[in-house]
C-alpha cells in the first residue's frame, strides 16, 4: 500500500560503512526480495526501512513523505523476525493484540482483528497458549499474525523461514505467497538466503553486495540478463559456469558464462573433456566435465544419464544462451 523510495541512503557504524549509497524504489503492492552474500547488509537495509536503525545520510520516502526520523511504530510497518520474537510471557492473543492495545484502539476492534488474522492463519485454536507451548511453525505463524493485526502498509520479513525444517518452509512459503495475494496491494519486503524463496516469491529481486545494489529486476530478468558476473553467479543453482582464457577469447569475451542447462552433449562440440564427477538428483543429472578450465563445467540434463566416469565427451554451449563478460565484469552488448 505504500511506495518506498530510497535516495542515496547510507549507513555507517562509526567508521564502518555498511550501506554505501542505495537508490531503490519499491512500488505499491510489490513483493521485493533482498538477496546477497552473508554480511552484505540485507538485514541492515531492512532495519533502515523499518526505522529500527537510523540512516546516516540520504532520504527515505514512504508515499512521497520523508520518514528519515519517523519512529518505527508510526511508519505503518510490521516486521517478522527470524527468531519470531514473540513475547514469552504473553498468550498468543495478547502477543497479537499488544500493538493495538498500546495504540489504545477500541477493544472490540482489537478482538475482531486478532480473530480475523488468527483465522486466516489457522491458529485460532491456539489463542490461549503461551509461545513456549507452540511448535516452531506455529510460532512463526503467530509472528506473522501479529504483523497482520497491525494492518501495516509494509510487511518486512528478515529470513522468516530459516529456523523451520524443509517441509514446513515450503508450506509457510506458500502461505506467505497467498497472504500477499489476499492482502492485495500491501507492500512486502523479504530478506532471504534461499534461492527458491527468492525466485518464487519475488515480483522483483534486489541483489546486494558489500552494501551496494548490484541489480534489481524480476527473477526472470536477473536469471536471463544478469548485469554482472557477480549477479550471474549468485542467481541460479547450480551456479553458472564461468570460463576464462582462450575458450572465452574465442567468443570475444574475457569471461564466458553459461548455465548448466544450456549446454548440450555433442561429440563434435567445441569443448572436449573428461567426466570427473556425476550427481544424480533423481529428476536431474549433473555431469562435471574437466575441459581444461580451473573448475569443471557442470552440465545439467533432465532424466537419467548413464555416462561412466572418465568418459570423454564433447560439449556444445547454446550460442543464444552464452553470457559474454568484458574485463570490467559487465556483459558485452552486441
Amino acid at each position: 500500500m505504500a511506495k518506498i523510495e530510497l535516495n542515496n541512503v547510507t549507513k555507517s557504524y562509526g567508521a564502518v560503512d555498511v550501506i554505501k549509497g542505495i537508490d531503490l524504489t519499491i512500488e505499491k503492492g510489490e513483493f521485493m526480495v533482498f538477496v546477497g552474500p552473508s554480511g552484505c547488509g540485507k538485514s541492515t537495509l531492512l532495519r533502515l526501512i523499518s526505522g529500527l536503525e537510523e540512516i546516516t545520510t540520504g532520504d527515505m520516502m514512504f508515499d512521497g513523505q520523508r520518514v528519515n526520523n519517523v519512529v518505527p511504530s508510526e511508519r505503518g510497518i510490521a516486521m517478522v523476525f527470524q527468531s519470531y520474537a514473540l513475547y514469552p510471557h504473553m498468550k498468543v492473543y495478547d502477543n497479537m493484540a499488544f500493538g493495538m492495545k498500546l495504540a489504545k484502539s477500541d477493544k472490540g476492534e482489537i478482538d475482531r482483528r486478532v480473530r480475523n488474522a488468527a483465522k486466516m492463519l489457522q491458529i485460532d485454536h491456539l489463542l490461549d497458549r503461551l509461545p513456549r507451548q507452540l511448535s516452531g511453525g506455529q510460532r512463526q505463524r503467530v509472528a506473522i499474525g501479529r504483523a497482520i493485526v497491525r494492518d501495516p502498509r509494509v510487511f518486512l520479513f528478515d529470513e522468516p523461514l530459516s529456523n523451520l525444517d524443509a517441509a514446513l518452509r515450503v508450506q509457510t512459503r506458500l502461505e506467505i505467497a497467498k497472504l500477499h495475494h489476499d492482502m492485495n496491494d500491501v507492500t512486502m519486503i523479504y530478506v532471504t538466503h534461499d534461492q527458491v524463496e527468492a525466485m518464487t516469491l519475488a515480483d522483483r529481486i534486489a541483489v546486494l553486495r558489500d552494501g551496494k545494489l548490484m541489480q534489481v529486476g524480476t527473477p526472470a530478468e536477473l536469471y536471463d540478463n544478469p548485469n554482472s558476473i557477480f549477479v550471474a553467479g549468485f542467481i541460479g543453482s547450480p551456479k553458472m559456469n564461468f570460463i576464462t582464457g582462450e575458450k572465452a577469447q574465442a567468443e570475444g569475451a574475457t569471461t564466458l558464462g553459461i548455465r548448466a542447462e544450456h549446454i548440450d552433449l555433442d561429440e563434435g562440440g567445441p569443448w572436449q573433456g573428461e567426466v570427473v564427477h556425476a550427481e544424480d538428483l533423481g529428476s536431474d543429472h549433473y555431469l562435471f566435465v574437466d575441459i581444461g578450465t580451473d573448475e569443471p563445467v557442470i552440465v545439467r540434463r533432465s532424466g537419467k544419464l548413464n555416462v561412466p566416469l572418465g568418459t570423454r565427451v564433447g560439449l556444445r554451449p547454446r550460442p543464444q544462451d552464452l553470457h559474454r563478460f568484458g574485463p570490467d565484469e559487465k556483459p558485452i552488448r552486441r
Binding site: G51, L52, E54, T56, T57, N68, N69, V70, V71, P72, E74
Partner: peptide, 15 residues
C-alpha cells in the same frame, strides 16, 4: 548529535 538537523519528531535513537 544526529548527522543532520532533524525536522519534526525526534528519531528513535534520540528518543
Amino acid at each position: 548529535t544526529p548527522a543532520e538537523p532533524h525536522k519534526g519528531s525526534p528519531s528513535l535513537q534520540r528518543q
